[in-house]
Design a protein around this nucleic acid. Structure first.
Length: 679
RNA sequence: GGCGGGGUAGCUCAGCUGGUUAGAGCGGCGGAUUCAUAAUCCGUAGGUCGGGGGUUCAAGUCCCCCCUUCGCUACCA
């Protein structure tokens, strides 16, 4: 039994999980599940990456503390991962006592060894916000081509790179004030001290060949010292011996892998040193990091150097993958292809995405494309047509003519079952080598052979001939056993379906080793549908949801006469109006209410004022409530809560309209934030 | 600009160190079947392998040039 630790990159707590993120989590999860399926002790850990200026500023903008913000994001992230059956053994946070302790320990070790130096550098400082500004928080004109509104590090128009202080007419992205140059002392990690170690390490089979080439490039252009400190105010860990300085988020983020291990070990009574310190010859631990190719520099250079210098072990390998494109293009908000996990419709099985990604994933760092038409065709053909249909077309006969039991003895199938068992070796090797695309192909080839077998036996013909019941039962017994093997092989990619297949055979779970023996002379459960075909409309609904918040759509030209707007009400004094507390609210969730035909249940985010649940009578106008998710609207926040038949409603959202579906929810211009007072 | 990865049938992709008539799945077309969530099975048609030049007895596979596409270009996250 191997002892393995795998990680995915820690998602940043500043944003939602989208389909691009999921490539990595699904890839890692499939690999980890495969290892567990083979009986190995495989730990899959992850955490939220929580520090840095963007988190601090966003929390400020939303009127919450950074801790509140990261707590909320963590919950959202966990919910998204859970939905896609990503099975972490532990999901933690970089804002944890364990991480602080490890970060300090590692830093002090490096400092004691002379790998940290200090230097005064000049950076852009915003006198209004009283803080140093990261490059991305400065906008101005490109000093080279004069393009307006460029970031502080490079120009999107002419790709020139420069420092923020070189920008013409630079402005703080937060408040618009012109930044000034200001000196500050910083701490630098002397990466070049580790050059010999790193050059050896990168040639030690720890990284993919393409990546090694890339590293060569970096080596030849020189390893520069790495600034690991940031000035207050900063959301992060204070550096022990440097007042007013904090660890740069990228220092403590990877240490989060270790902190999560530590937290897990404390909970589970396991030994942290087994994972990060000792690597005894008796039972070495394998450590693997799955990452996107964009963060290679951090994981393939800084991280091994940081670990090595602090006396910890380095990972066995870094597995980098490419980016996700949608319909051949970069995900884009304006094209409506920037799809967050929450946009993935409830009516669409998450395992479809897992399978589709699996059919595309290789061990290389190529980008992979989510072609939505191909997605539909692939899933419908492979999973519904070839896989599920195999059981659907044969299980019925076991109940109709076999007494609900598999044949008393496993029949002669011409060696088919053994061929399927033998194919497991190749499929296993493909999983192990992260060649999921080939693994899926191999499995589907088997599925085709199984369907050919059924076709050749034609149990439906035999079923019409009296006295052939045994043959019917036997051929379906073979088919169902083959189906069971297919489900076993697909289990890492389709864990939920595999569990249901296990239940069909009255098994607690499908197991890799048990596949060697066919099942016979035992009852099976009645077959129930495992998967539905993807309808184009479901995909369209997803794209619609992804496009939210949608621009206020022009009112449809009514074919009937618009009812005249009612007369104005009598005047009121200002004081009366001022008693109504109107607030900007972000629609976090919008669902139909079971049993109610006019209501939607909205979960509204009011920023600092927390969340509200509002039952709104707007279903007629918004039959697909998911399109509302993410939108900003206006609510009456101090309306007395009202107990309704379907629950308590804590306020009301504002909408214009006459009646029925002629109803239009108010929207706020961009820039408005949840919780803002409307007046 | 520099560097790197792609450009192979309508779609998604295989094609190892150059070697017989370039492959798969899906889709198309024709047929069979109707057990199954219109699923399955059999057959078939589709490609001057981005363009041009070169090396070679032989190139999708090597070299050069060009077109095109995506990405990277570190102290942003």
């Amino acid at each position: 039994m191997r002892r393995i630790l795998v990680t995915s990159a820690l998602p940043y707590a500043n944003g939602a999980i989208h389909l691009g993120h999921l490539v990595e989590y699904i890839q890692t999860d499939i690999w980890a599940r495969y290892q567990r399926l083979r009986g190995h002790d495989c730990l899959y850990l992850c955490a939220d990456d929580t520090h840095g200026t963007p988190i601090m500023l966003r929390a400020k903008r939303e009127g919450v503390t950074p801790e509140q913000l990261i707590e909320r994001m963590s919950q959202e992230h966990r919910r998204d991962f859970d939905r896609f059956a990503i099975q972490f053994d532990h999901y933690y946070s970089t804002h944890s006592p364990e991480n602080r302790q490890l970060a300090e320990q590692i830093y002090l070790k490096h400092r004691a060894a002379g790998h940290i130096r200090t230097a005064v550098i000049q950076q852009a400082y915003c006198p209004h916000d009283q803080m140093f500004l990261p490059d991305r928080f400065i906008r101005g004109c490109c000093p080279v081509c004069q393009a307006a509104d460029q970031y502080g590090d490079s120009c999107e128009a002419c790709s020139a790179t420069y420092t923020p202080l070189e920008l013409t007419d630079a402005r703080c992205a937060v408040c618009g004030t012109a930044p000034v140059a200001r000196d500050s002392e910083h701490l630098f990690f002397k990466l070049d001290d580790f050059r010999p170690f790193l050059q050896q390490w990168t040639r030690g089979g720890h990284i993919q060949d393409e990546v090694a080439n890339k590293l060569e490039e970096w080596f030849s252009s020189g390893l520069k010292d790495w600034n690991i400190s940031r000035d207050a105010p900063y959301f992060g860990f204070a550096i022990p011996d440097a007042p007013g300085k904090f660890f740069y988020v990228w220092l403590d983020a990877p240490i989060g892998y270790m902190a999560t291990t530590l937290s897990y070990c404390q909970q589970q009574g396991r030994c942290f040193d087994d994972y990060w310190l000792n690597n005894d010859a008796d039972r070495p631990t394998e450590v693997y990091h799955f990452i996107g190719k964009d963060i290679l520099y951090f994981h393939a250079l800084f991280w091994p150097a940081v670990l090595h210098g602090a006396g910890f072990r380095t990972p066995n390998a870094i597995f980098a993958h490419g980016f996700l494109t949608v319909n051949g293009q970069k995900m884009s908000k304006s094209r409506g292809t920037f799809i967050d996990a929450r946009h993935y419709p409830d009516t669409l099985n998450p395992e479809y995405l897992r399978y589709y990604y699996a059919t595309k994933l290789t061990s290389r760092i190529d980008d992979i494309d989510l072609n939505l038409d191909d997605f539909i065709a692939r899933v419908n053909s492979d999973l519904v047509g070839k896989l599920v249909n195999l059981a659907s077309r044969t299980a019925g006969f076991i109940h109709k003519q076999g007494g609900g039991r598999l044949a008393a003895v496993y029949p002669d199938d011409g060696g088919l079952y053994q061929a399927f068992v033998a194919a497991g070796d190749e499929i296993g090797a493909l999983y192990e080598g992260r060649e999921f695309a080939r693994a899926m192909q191999a499995i589907m080839r088997l599925a085709e052979r199984a369907n050919q077998y059924v076709e050749a036996q034609s149990p439906w013909k035999l079923a019409k001939q009296p006295g052939q019941e045994l043959l019917v039962q036997q051929s379906c017994t073979v088919a169902l056993n083959l189906f069971r093997l297919l489900a076993t092989y697909l289990q890492p990619a389709l864990p939920l379906t595999a569990a249901r297949v296990a239940a069909l055979f009255n098994l607690p779970a499908l197991s890799w080793d048990a596949r060697e023996t066919p099942l016979f002379d035992q009852p099976i459960q009645p077959f129930s549908h495992l998967m539905a075909r993807i309808e184009r409309a479901t995909i369209d609904a997803m794209l619609l949801a992804a496009a939210a918040p949608p621009p206020p759509s022009p009112p449809p030209t009514p074919s009937v006469v618009v009812p005249a707007a009612p007369e104005l009400l009598p005047e009121i004094p200002y004081d009366l109006f001022a008693q109504v507390d109107l607030r900007i609210a972000r629609i976090e969730q919008a669902t139909l209410v079971a049993g109610a035909d006019k209501l939607l249940c909205l979960t509204l985010d009011l920023g600092a004022q927390g969340q509200r649940t509002v039952l709104a009578g707007i279903r007629a106008a918004y039959p697909n409530p998911e399109i509302l998710v993410g939108r900003l609207t206006v609510m009456v926040a101090n309306l007395q809560p009202r107990q309704m038949k379907f629950g308590r409603s804590e306020g009301m959202v504002l909408a214009a309209g006459t009646a029925g579906s002629d109803l239009y929810l108010l929207a706020a211009d961009s820039g408005a934030q949840p919780g803002m007072r409307v007046k």
